[in-house]
């Protein structure tokens, strides 16, 4: 329990630090949200100054930060200048959209990675393994930007998949099954891109840990006992290899928000990525800090979950933690 408590306190301090850091960085940036208004010939400088005052932008940074922290503790992450809504409200809908992409993609990637990884470990050095490793190497050296662009091109050329956005125009009038179909069609290409960009690292890890387990003495012993190969792989080797994979799985959870950024931007999926980019450029201060904070939070949660999982499935750590 102390271990968990420690981690929790640690995480809180970390989030605090992250918020301070990002608040400082962004406040020092030149220009603010209202600068653009000045180009509108119909708005007087006095009006802009008054608005700046209304949004507290003319107050010193420490004052603004203390206001913000006081509100943040209560779950209010501030206000978006650009959207004129609370940041929490804005972010929550975007996060949902992002997770709609990244969760299925992560699950899919893990299923495929385990299948491919186990097979190529079992057939180490044979053609199955070589094909798989050629594939993973290709994917590994291809930046996700390029993968996304290629798939964008394919989608545009083929015309089978809708490009851009999450739903079609008449979405409200569809039945539940049609809605599901519509979203699935829109998500198909982004999820494919994501799976392809996540998968090579996973496959390599699964394969490596499986091979390591396959060569451990107990497997040799089991093989000598005449346990069938398939049963050996699934019942004995795989659980033994699971340990390092568990921490990797935690990392996958931690990356749920960050991993889709490029894909979302390229495919104009209304998730966190485009919002963050837009807010950074618009100097929409609290949205950026909110996004960073929440992603840091998710990352910490991921690490925490992987600790918990490790605790649950590895008796050695459980012993050490007490």
């Amino acid at each position: 329990m102390r271990f968990l408590l420690n981690r929790l306190i640690h995480a809180i301090f970390l989030l605090f630090g992250v918020s301070l850091l990002s608040f400082l960085l962004l406040s020092l940036a030149p220009g603010d949200y209202l600068s653009e208004m000045q180009l509108n010939p119909q708005i007087s400088p006095e009006t802009v100054a008054a608005l700046r005052h209304q949004y507290n932008l003319d107050r010193p940074i420490p004052v603004r930060y203390s206001h913000w922290v006081a509100a943040a503790v209560k779950g209010d992450l501030g206000f978006s200048f650009a959207y004129n809504v609370p940041v929490t409200k804005l972010l929550s809908s975007r996060i949902l959209n992002t997770l709609l992409l990244t969760i299925p993609a992560t699950i899919l990637a893990w299923i495929i990675a385990i299948a491919v990884g186990v097979i190529s470990a079992a057939k180490q050095g044979r053609w199955e393994d070589q094909v798989a490793s050629a594939g993973t190497t290709t994917l590994l050296i291809t930046p996700d930007i390029l993968i996304a662009l290629v798939f964008l091109w394919v989608a545009l050329r083929s015309g089978y998949f809708p490009v851009g956005g999450m739903v079609s125009v008449g979405f409200d009038e569809l039945t539940a099954t049609q809605k599901l179909r519509d979203i699935t069609l829109h998500a198909a290409i982004p999820i494919t891109i994501l799976v392809l960009s996540i998968i090579p690292v996973l496959i390599r890890h699964v394969r490596a840990t499986m091979i390591e387990a396959l060569h451990s003495p107990f497997v040799r012993a089991a093989r000598a006992h005449g346990i069938p190969r398939s049963r050996l792989l699934l019942r004995h080797v795989f659980p033994a290899a699971a340990n390092p994979l568990v921490s990797l799985f935690g990392l996958s959870i931690a990356n749920l928000l960050g991993v889709g950024l490029i894909t979302e931007v390229v495919m104009s999926w209304p998730g966190m990525g485009p919002l963050l980019l837009e807010s950074v450029q618009a100097r929409d201060l609290y949205v950026v800090i909110g996004a960073i904070l929440i992603s840091a939070f998710v990352l910490q949660t991921g690490i925490f979950v992987s600790d918990l999982l490790l605790l649950a499935c590895d008796p050695r750590i459980r012993k050490g933690a007490r």
Partner: peptide, 24 residues
């Protein structure tokens, strides 16, 4: 190491964007 964790606590792409935004 706490300081290092602060940097590791952020998805790098987010941090990259944020830091780039504040510089001239």
């Amino acid at each position: 190491m706490r300081f290092a964790e602060l940097f590791l606590a952020l998805p790098w792409i987010y941090l990259l964007l944020a830091v780039r935004a504040f510089l001239p």
